[in-house]
Simulated assay, not measured.
Amino acid sequence: MRTYDQAVEHLKEAIQEHESIIAFKKAEQKMQSYPELEHLAHKMKAYQQDAVLFKKIDKKQAQNLADEKASKLEAELTGLPIVQDYRAKMQDASDLIQYVTKTLEDKINKELANGK
């Protein structure tokens, strides 16, 4: 009989070998090979944070400008095929993890309800 730790290790290995996880890791490596994408993403987030700050201090014109700049960068990033591929592969990997988690949760709850 396998111990809990062995079962967890086996599950981790199986997940890491799943095609959706492998595809996501490849897409992630591809994204990381373009540091300018990360720079654009950080820039977009900074504009979004500026917009929130300007809203708090009631600077409507500055808020609108920051929102506009963030939206332009977001559109530029989301329109790139590499980003679209990354997001699709990330969603597939996320779906797998959610499925595994839900299945484990359901099984544990069932066993708890049956007094095991």
Results as ranks from 00 to 15, higher is better:
Ala93Thr: 10
Leu53Gln: 09
Ala75Pro: 14
His42Tyr: 11
Lys110Ser: 07
Asn109Val: 08
Gln29Cys: 04
Leu96Tyr: 07
Gly79Lys: 07
Val52Ser: 04
Ile108Met: 03
Phe54His: 00
Ala88Asp: 15
Phe24Trp: 02
Lys89Gln: 15
Lys72Cys: 14
Ile57Gly: 02
Glu74Met: 05
Leu37Glu: 12
Lys25Gln: 13
Asn64Pro: 04
Tyr86Asn: 06
Gln63Ile: 00
Gln61Glu: 11
Asp85Gly: 13
Ala70His: 00
Gly79Phe: 12
Gln63Tyr: 02
Ala75Met: 09
Lys89His: 10
Arg87Gly: 15
Phe54Pro: 02
Asn64Ala: 00
Val83Ala: 09
Lys43Met: 15
Leu65Glu: 06
Pro81Cys: 10
Lys69Ala: 01
Ile97Ser: 08
Asp95Cys: 06
Glu74Thr: 03
Leu53Pro: 03
Ala27Asn: 11
Thr103Ser: 11
Ser94Phe: 12
Lys107Leu: 04
Leu104Ser: 13
Glu68Trp: 00
Ala93Glu: 05
Leu37Cys: 06
Asp95Gln: 10
Ile82Lys: 07
Gln84Met: 06
Arg87Tyr: 10
Lys43Ser: 14
Thr103Gln: 10
Leu104Asn: 12
Lys43Tyr: 09
Leu37Val: 11
Leu73Asp: 01
Lys110His: 08
Asp67Cys: 01
Val52His: 02
Ile57Trp: 03
Lys102Phe: 11
Met90Ala: 12
Ala41Ser: 13
Ala88Trp: 15
Gln63Pro: 00
Glu28Val: 13
Asp106Pro: 02
Leu96Phe: 00
Lys26His: 11
Gln61Ile: 04
Lys107Pro: 01
Ile82Met: 11
Gln29Ala: 14
Lys45Thr: 14
Tyr99Ser: 10
Lys102Ala: 04
Ala23Arg: 09
Ile97Gln: 00
His39Gly: 14
Lys107Gly: 01
Asn109Glu: 12
Asn64Glu: 01
Met31Arg: 03
Ala66His: 05
Gly79Ala: 14
Gln48Leu: 04
Ile82Phe: 05
Val83Asp: 06
Lys69Arg: 15
Lys25Gly: 15
Asp58Ala: 06
